[in-house]
Design a protein around this nucleic acid. Structure first.
Lengths: 226, 226
DNA sequence: GCCAACTTTCAGGAACTTGTCAGGTTCGGC
DNA sequence: GCCGAACCTGACAAGTTCCTGAAAGTTGGC
């Protein structure tokens, strides 16, 4: 079990509760560390604080969800409905608002683990935006049925955009998808990747139908058939 | 989808919300009726009010859980912790306290359905990917009928990949197959095993047809005949 | 129609990934 | 405790991809 919580005192209390209930818990105090541990330790459940330095809980959740189907339980200080919906939409399996009672938390953890246990085979998550289909699991992209070869950076960018069609992504956001957290690359980098992607997925790269420029903002992926 | 709720007005509102979101919903106004409908209609999800005449939600939940693994979402008027714990322990997959927002309810329903959907395929003893056949039971591998000798690590890697053809496995995932939990070996280790496997199963190891590299990601096993 | 701001495009060196190998370590059987 | 098989590792070469700055082309507001 992995606990991602930036407040060290709080994290320690959590860890004790979990261990008292028979779980082995590893703690990470920031987003990138949590992601790294999640990848290497393959925990059977991830407890995620929404607010964290480096990489926030919502984004982390989205990444985890793309890579595995480990159950994710979100901890959120704010109790607004928006947060809840955002969390669930990003793929969190459940959420608990602070302050929570330890008993409630443990009950929810038990439920999640029981539900996940029947060795659920990964769900087929296909991201479809018009003719563009991204398969994160197979790491493939097809356009109108034709298989497209993508480099890692291109794939990361396209997958991020396919996950939220029509949404505008800034260059900074897309850069984060490719370079991880804080490599300081230029916006040109993103432009170049977008250009290369257009060459591959657009029938006419000069007049993009799928991967559009939003002047002054960034890029978005749309259903080009409409 | 089955809605078990004794308050008729409330039940009707619920039904409308569900249908507005694209679900077909059947309503039952008491416990015994709900149980009967659940058995006959085999809904893909049951929405259960805790308090009901005849047979209350908690007991009904327990019975349903014993008979099938349909996801159960509890509706509870009381927001006390006791109810929550009872509900979850009886096997409810989630719960919502009244008053709830329709959006929250629908988001939770979506999550439950997504989680329940992967319909576990029956385990076939032979894993076949093109010419490569892995028999986990006998611990043998054949390629085009020829029996191949594999070391334990090689077998573990190949078996994992054969279980999910086309899917990309990261080196970390493959490492876990061989080393168990969290030994931290290098990625080179995996490369070496893959290289040795290629020598054994590929007609031309320089141009792999089965065990492919996915640059920046890992490896995947494909049906080389296509 | 003009200008400033923004975007596209390009080429080549930097940075990263992978394939391969040889040598060292671990492990179980005898 | 010796032996061989299997495994792990660090190094390096060979590929591949990424990044960058600058020039050329667009866009939007006035």
């Amino acid at each position: 079990m992995l606990v991602a919580e930036d407040d060290r005192k709080h994290a320690e209390i959590l860890r004790r509760y979990l261990e008292a209930d028979g779980y082995r818990a590893t703690v990470a105090h920031d987003g990138p560390t949590a992601l790294d541990r999640a990848r290497r330790l393959r925990p059977d459940l991830v407890l995620l604080d929404v607010m964290m330095p480096g990489l926030d809980g919502l984004d982390l959740c989205r990444i985890l969800r793309a890579e595995s189907n480990v159950p994710v339980l979100m901890l959120t200080a704010r109790s607004g409905e928006e947060d809840l919906l955002l969390g669930l939409d990003r793929g969190a399996d459940d959420y608990v608002t602070k302050p929570y009672s330890p008993r409630e938390l443990l009950a929810r953890i038990r439920t999640l683990l029981r539900r996940a246990s029947p060795a659920a085979p990964a769900a087929d998550v296909l991201l479809r935006v018009g003719a563009v289909v991204v398969d994160p699991e197979r790491h493939t992209v097809t356009v109108s049925g034709r298989l497209i070869e993508c480099t890692p950076a291109e794939f990361a960018i396209l997958a991020a955009m396919a996950g939220q069609p029509d949404r505008v992504f800034t260059r900074a956001q897309l850069l984060q998808q490719t370079s991880g957290y804080d490599r300081d690359s230029t916006d040109r980098t993103v432009d170049t990747h977008v250009m290369n992607l257009r060459r591959k997925i657009e029938p006419n790269p000069r007049r993009p139908a799928h991967l559009l420029t939003v002047y002054g903002m960034g890029y978005k992926l749309v259903d080009g058939t409409r």
